[in-house]
Amino acid sequence: MKADHFIRTSTKSGYKKVCIHIRRGDFLKERQLRNGFSVADLTYIKRAKEVFLKRYSKVQFVVLSNDKKWCKMHIKGDVISNFTEPGDDMALMALCDDVVVTSGTFGWWGAWLSGGTTVYFKGYPRPMSPIDRRFNRTEYYPPHWIGL
């Protein structure tokens, strides 16, 4: 399995593996933004990382994204997945101990499958947007997940 090989060869043994799933790409299109799709900024990602840095003495972040170029420019010191197939990304999220999700259902499912602690972006969907008016946050985000 590619994801298992990636974890074994790209991360440090004995460290908690925390996946950060960063959804960008199509969520940045004008129509999507108007409807209420939103993209987490670096401030959110830094705050989410702090949750795990305070929790664990040894933590390693593994970044997955549909915008690897942006991640390589803005996120330093973390392992960035080189996978191009969604199934490989999903398997990698499921293998991580904990997950940080930004926006969208793909990251949500990866966090669910991981079964660990999940930190999610409370700005998705954008509050008071057309999507938000039809969105039930209490049904979408499990109560034990941490919203930032």
Rank of each mutant, 00 (worst) to 15 (best):
M1E: 11
K2T: 13
K2G: 08
K2I: 13
A3S: 07
A3T: 05
D4M: 08
D4R: 12
F6T: 07
F6G: 00
F6N: 07
I7C: 04
I7R: 09
I7Y: 00
I7T: 02
I7G: 01
T9R: 12
T9A: 08
T11G: 14
T11S: 05
S13N: 13
S13M: 12
K16I: 13
K16T: 10
K16A: 05
V18W: 10
C19A: 15
C19W: 10
C19G: 14
I20D: 06
I20R: 06
I20M: 08
H21V: 07
I22F: 01
G25K: 15
F27C: 13
L28Q: 10
K29D: 15
K29W: 10
E30V: 14
E30G: 05
L33P: 04
R34P: 01
R34A: 08
N35A: 11
G36Y: 11
F37N: 06
S38P: 06
S38D: 12
D41S: 08
T43L: 11
Y44C: 09
I45D: 00
K46L: 15
R47K: 15
A48F: 15
K49C: 07
Y56H: 13
S57D: 13
Q60F: 10
L64R: 01
L64Q: 03
S65V: 02
D67G: 00
K69R: 09
W70Q: 00
W70H: 06
K72T: 10
M73H: 09
I75P: 02
I75V: 09
G77D: 03
G77I: 05
D78H: 05
V79A: 01
V79N: 05
S81V: 01
N82A: 11
F83C: 00
E85L: 09
E85K: 09
E85C: 08
P86C: 04
D88G: 04
D89V: 03
D89K: 02
M90N: 00
M90G: 01
A91W: 00
L92Q: 11
L92G: 04
A94M: 03
A94V: 02
A94K: 05
D97I: 06
D98W: 05
D98G: 07
D98E: 08
V100H: 08
V101N: 01
V101W: 03
V101G: 06
T102Q: 04
T102I: 02
S103A: 14
S103R: 02
G104W: 00
F106Q: 04
G107K: 05
G110M: 04
G110T: 04
W112M: 10
L113Q: 15
L113M: 10
S114K: 00
S114V: 09
S114N: 06
G116R: 10
G116I: 11
T117E: 15
V119S: 13
V119N: 09
Y120V: 13
F121H: 13
K122E: 13
K122R: 12
G123D: 15
Y124I: 01
P125V: 00
P125L: 02
P127S: 11
P127Y: 07
